[in-house]
């Protein structure tokens, strides 16, 4: 398991430099626009994508064929991707949160409770995104997985705009649910755990 995570970290470390520049650019953008939530969202999105990049490298190199000749269980191979994703997400949040707080300190654009609400929602969304994407990438591979990712990004917005007259006012609904927002990351973690069970079942049926 440690070897698998180490392999992925070494493989994707080449991306880190490029992404450090992107984060720097986003930081400047966030300061200029005084929108700290954007920084948080994009940093989370970037780190989430690293697991998908690792899966793409694996697919291109036929790594699974090699990995399955090693003394590793299929469950370990799948779980390593979940642990990697979760670790990267935590690192992303830990890096982004102080920056967001700094921007907030200087701009005081939104009240601090809203900031933590945003933080919880974004973390929960990222965990759910991983929970959906990882089994899809493991089952379909990276090319089809990308299409599903695009659909996943655009479909909710499209559906809401299509059926908005039938939906209750989202702002009011969210305001009513405010007290539950802090537990959403835990719900996200639970969904991620369920997803790992599904992905393991998918992987165990695969042939190499």
């Amino acid at each position: 398991m440690v070897g698998l995570i180490l392999k992925d970290l070494i493989t994707i470390q080449r991306q880190f430099k490029t992404q450090a520049f992107i984060v720097l650019f986003l930081l400047i953008m966030a300061i200029v626009t005084q929108q700290s939530a954007i920084l948080l969202t994009l940093v989370v999105f970037i780190v989430t994508m690293q697991a998908m990049i690792a899966l793409t490298y694996d697919e291109q190199s036929k790594w699974d064929r090699f990995a399955n000749t090693l003394p590793l269980t299929k469950g370990d191979i799948v779980l390593s991707k979940y642990i990697l994703s979760f670790l990267l997400l935590m690192i992303g949040l830990i890096i982004a949160l102080p920056l967001v707080l700094l921007i907030h300190f200087f701009t005081q654009q939104e009240i601090i409770t809203d900031l933590f609400l945003n933080f919880s929602l974004i973390a929960a969304f990222a965990l759910c995104l991983l929970a959906v994407l990882l089994p899809i990438y493991i089952h379909f591979g990276s090319i089809k997985g990308r299409f599903v990712l695009m659909a996943f990004c655009f479909m909710p917005g499209a559906l809401v705009s299509l059926f908005k007259e039938y939906l209750p006012n989202i702002t009011i609904t969210l305001a009513n649910l405010k007290q539950f927002v802090y537990i959403t990351p835990f719900a996200g973690l639970f969904i991620l755990w369920l997803s790992s069970l599904l992905a393991t079942a998918i992987y165990q049926r695969k042939e190499f």
Binding site: T11, Q60, K62, F66, T69, L70, P71
Partner: peptide, 27 residues
């Protein structure tokens, strides 16, 4: 067992030294 296929199926950005660090975690 040791297995050798018709090609080396590891991510191509890795080098032999990095592969040593990884493989020692497996065996």
């Amino acid at each position: 067992i040791g297995v050798v296929f018709d090609d080396l199926y590891v991510p191509e950005t890795l080098n032999a030294t990095q592969l040593d660090k990884i493989m020692k975690k497996f065996f």
